[in-house]
Computed example of a mutant assay.
Amino acid sequence: MSRKKQPYINEQVEMERVEDCLHITWIGKPGSHYKLYGGFKPEKDNIQELLEENSTGEFILQIPIDSLPSYYLIQVDDEWSSIFAERVLPLEQAINFRDMGGYRTLDGKRTKWGLLFRSDQLSKLSEQDIKLLENYQLKTIVDYRSAHERKMNPNKEIGTVEETVWCDPQSSFSEAAANAADLNEENIKLVRQLEEGMVDSKYVNGKGLKVIEDYRKMVTSEASQIAYKKFLQVCAQVESAPLVHHCRGGKDRTGFGSMLLLLALGVCDEDIVKDYILTGVIRTERNELKYKLYRELTDNQDYLDYLMSMIETRSEYIKASLDEIRQRYDNTDEYFKDYYDLNQKDLEQMRSFYLE
């Protein structure tokens, strides 16, 4: 039986799915009476159906996967929750496809659900996965992968998608996969680079200094600027939504893009970092498997620590990018203007459309 607890929804609720059964638990300010409402569109006026009410704030519902999307509100006595939904979509062949809704902004708003998504690659989607994404009316895909990655693992076609935008930031995060035919070959290549001294010894430990350095470089590198300008310009064309942006694992290239988008929308740092580190929670089992595979190739602990630092999702990585931006600009809106040609009108239009 498949049991999947959502790694994070918001500060008010927790959710867990067991096949077609959905568990929702209120963890916000306690009350005496709780009412759960549902709807198929992420707007308060369309979330009107009373699904259940009780005095515990715990709800168990039959919500079949093929009936999604579904959005919810909880009334606690006389107060209302914000809109919420399942953040990680219950796909069979993509583990990191998730909704970027519900994040808090500095001025008290939240990102809307059902418009902005981030993911790992879409090359292995099952028929059920494709039908589910079509239910979300996905219109645009932004793919950060290199031409080699796309050739090796082409995305599956999704019927509702009208446009795919390719924008490779040419980051070091894709270099290991650049000439590898499969995962085993990639692992061998990574270990060989360490054994042949191709990685500066100052990085060969578990401190993550190489990743931190790369996240800082992405703030100003020319290739990164070109790629993420394309992404943000797509987001500024609000008719492109619902949209998903993705790389291979949905961690670094997608993580940086997500940080930029959320920062442009005015999301608070706490939730920007939260969104980033969720990938690490989602990929816990995968990373444990990677460690075992690395151990089959080397018993050098410094090598192993370095390799794990490259695949982990540490808060200090994305904070390094945020720090680099703020060291250069007192007003982050100026950064988006200088690097990505987003003027104040563009940013205001994006905030008006993507926030509530």
Rank of each mutant, 00 (worst) to 15 (best):
I47A: 10
N153M: 14
V244F: 00
D214A: 15
K292S: 15
Y215I: 09
V238P: 05
E239H: 03
D252S: 08
V76A: 10
L347P: 01
G57R: 03
E316M: 11
L263W: 02
T164W: 02
V281D: 04
I188Y: 11
L347V: 14
L138P: 12
G39P: 09
S123G: 08
R314T: 14
L22V: 10
E270P: 09
C167V: 03
P7S: 06
L89S: 06
T160G: 06
V273L: 08
A227H: 06
L342W: 11
D143M: 06
R351W: 13
L194Q: 05
D129V: 06
M350G: 07
I95M: 05
L51C: 14
L51P: 05
Y317D: 14
L190D: 08
Q193A: 14
R286N: 02
E79D: 12
S174G: 12
V76K: 08
Y329K: 12
T313I: 10
E92F: 06
L232Y: 04
G114K: 08
D271E: 11
E11C: 04
N153R: 06
L73W: 10
I83Q: 09
L89F: 06
M350L: 12
N187L: 12
C167W: 00
S240G: 09
L73P: 09
D99K: 00
Y291L: 15
K229G: 12
M218S: 04
F97Q: 00
T313G: 06
Y8K: 04
D299Q: 13
A223W: 00
H23R: 08
R118P: 00
A320T: 02
I27E: 03
N287G: 04
L342S: 03
K210F: 15
E185R: 05
D20E: 15
Q225A: 12
H246P: 05
I282P: 07
T332D: 07
E16G: 10
L307A: 02
L209K: 07
K292Y: 09
P7A: 08
E348R: 14
Y37D: 07
R314N: 12
Y335T: 06
K5M: 14
L133T: 01
L278W: 00
A85Y: 00
V219M: 11
R110I: 13
C21F: 10
A264F: 05
A177I: 04
R314F: 09
L122A: 01
D129I: 11
F97P: 00
P64C: 12
P64R: 11
F97E: 01
